[in-house]
Amino acid sequence: MGNQIVSMAKSMAPKKGSKKNSSNASGRGKVRGVRKGSLEEEVMQKQALALALQQHQKAQMRLERTMSQRAAPGPTPTSTGRLPRSSSTRARSVTDPVVHPQQLVNGALDQKVLQTLETRHFVLVHGGGHGAWCWYKTIALLEEAGFTASAIDLTGSGIDYTDPNSITSLSQYVKPLFNFFEKLGENEKVILVGHNVGGACISYAMEHYPRRIAKAVFVAAAMVTDGQKAIDIFTSQSESEEDMLQKAQNFIYANGKSAPPTALEIDKNLIRDVFYNTSPSKDVALATVSIRPVPFAPLTEKLSLTSENYGSVRRFYVETGDDKALPVANQEALQRNNPPEKSFKLKGSDHAPFFSKPQALHKTLVEIAMLGAKS
């Protein structure tokens, strides 16, 4: 194969002695022209070789993926007695672990394990200013592991082009999520995941659809109590931390300065420092062009939560260890005031673990899905 690639590269490179390299200039001009032509030829040969190698690697990866899909469903131990590694080409690191290898087959949970779960369906609710787009890594990982993942665009978010300034209530903001629940099968349940102010949104949904929600997961989210507002969670921080968050926020007064704010806009020059301080640059770039103003009225609405409805749903909290928008101390205070069934920590994650620690977040979500029935 190596000889074929070299031959391919040579065939893609220009031929020596072509008319392009000939010159009718003086002797000195000819020497310089030959040297320049040789250099260009060498560069083009290297580029051709690199392209050929790249094409070969892509073809090899496609072949390996096809082979893994055609393989028998059961794992085949290697000579060392260990299960083979997943055929996924996604890079992984020690600090961003994958799902525990037990019960894994080619990167997915064993079908027997999946069949024992109360539900395989995750519903992902974004935070303020974001949209369904922010969950793209989480969606891919969950589906590869055999789950179903649905990401919701709340009103005025993502590809829902309602003017955020026109949204005047929490019920209006979460209407797409409620529409989703109305379309679920009669006995179908989901695992509801909320990020940032999405925590208040899923709390509101837990109160209205408790029998449709098997578990609720708050990811660096506003896990409010009865009578509390989402904005309370983000305005109770220490002075230095609050200043950093406030610097990234600009209020919009669509009804005039004498009326309350209608939306809150995030300063795109500061979002990396506050929200994505450990996230990859490409994801920060995605957020910069995708993030939208946050409707203000839903943030200031008090929630009415009852033990019969909201309190009947199993709750879990996921802490983000290097969060500048909602520091760990505040996340811990939330949990003391409203204890979840269990808490998980993502070390080194900023406020957006779906960008900065997607594998660790995925592992946590799968672990929550696999937790047995509450005794």
Rank of each mutant, 00 (worst) to 15 (best):
F344T: 01
E41A: 13
L192V: 07
G2P: 05
T162W: 06
F122T: 02
L141F: 13
A220D: 10
A151H: 04
P97V: 00
Y204D: 01
M8T: 15
D283K: 00
G37M: 03
M8F: 09
Q69G: 05
I5W: 06
F178A: 11
K374A: 10
R65I: 11
G33K: 15
H362W: 06
G348T: 10
S150R: 08
L83W: 12
E332N: 12
V274S: 04
I202N: 02
S279D: 01
S166L: 14
A248F: 02
L334Y: 07
S307H: 13
G128F: 00
K229W: 04
S281Q: 15
K183L: 13
E42V: 14
F180I: 05
N338V: 06
I213P: 01
E301W: 00
R315K: 15
A149Y: 06
I5F: 03
G372W: 10
G127A: 04
Y204C: 05
A132L: 02
A145N: 06
K183N: 14
G37Q: 06
S87E: 08
K36E: 13
L170C: 03
V224W: 00
P75K: 08
E186R: 11
R336I: 14
K342D: 01
V174S: 05
R92D: 05
G198C: 09
I167A: 03
A151G: 06
F234T: 07
P75F: 00
S312I: 09
I233D: 03
I167N: 03
A71R: 13
S7V: 12
L49G: 00
Q55D: 12
S258D: 15
I231L: 11
R62H: 10
G146P: 06
R65G: 03
A220E: 04
T116E: 11
Q57T: 14
V99E: 00
S22V: 13
L142E: 03
P340Q: 08
K357R: 15
I191Y: 03
A132C: 03
S38H: 14
P327N: 05
I233A: 07
S88E: 09
L346H: 06
S26I: 08
Q172G: 06
E118M: 07
G348E: 08
T306I: 04
N255K: 12
I139A: 02
I213M: 07
L83H: 10
E265R: 11
T168Y: 08
V34A: 12
A140T: 12
K324T: 09
K183A: 14
A108D: 01
V274W: 01
N309V: 05
R92E: 11
S26V: 05
I233H: 07
P327E: 04
Q4L: 14
G227K: 11
G146F: 10
S88W: 04
M223H: 09
A287Q: 00
C201T: 13
F218A: 01
H351P: 04
H195K: 06
R90I: 14
A91C: 02
E241D: 13
N179E: 15
F316L: 03
H100Q: 13
K374P: 03
E64T: 15
V174L: 03
S7Y: 11
L124R: 02
H100M: 09
N255R: 12
G227P: 05
R62C: 07
A230H: 04
D232Y: 05
R314E: 13
K357F: 02
A59R: 12
S356Q: 00
I167W: 02
A360L: 11
V274Y: 06
L104K: 10
S23A: 09
S150M: 01
R92I: 14
K189C: 02
E182M: 10
L361C: 07
L361S: 07
M1S: 12
L49K: 10
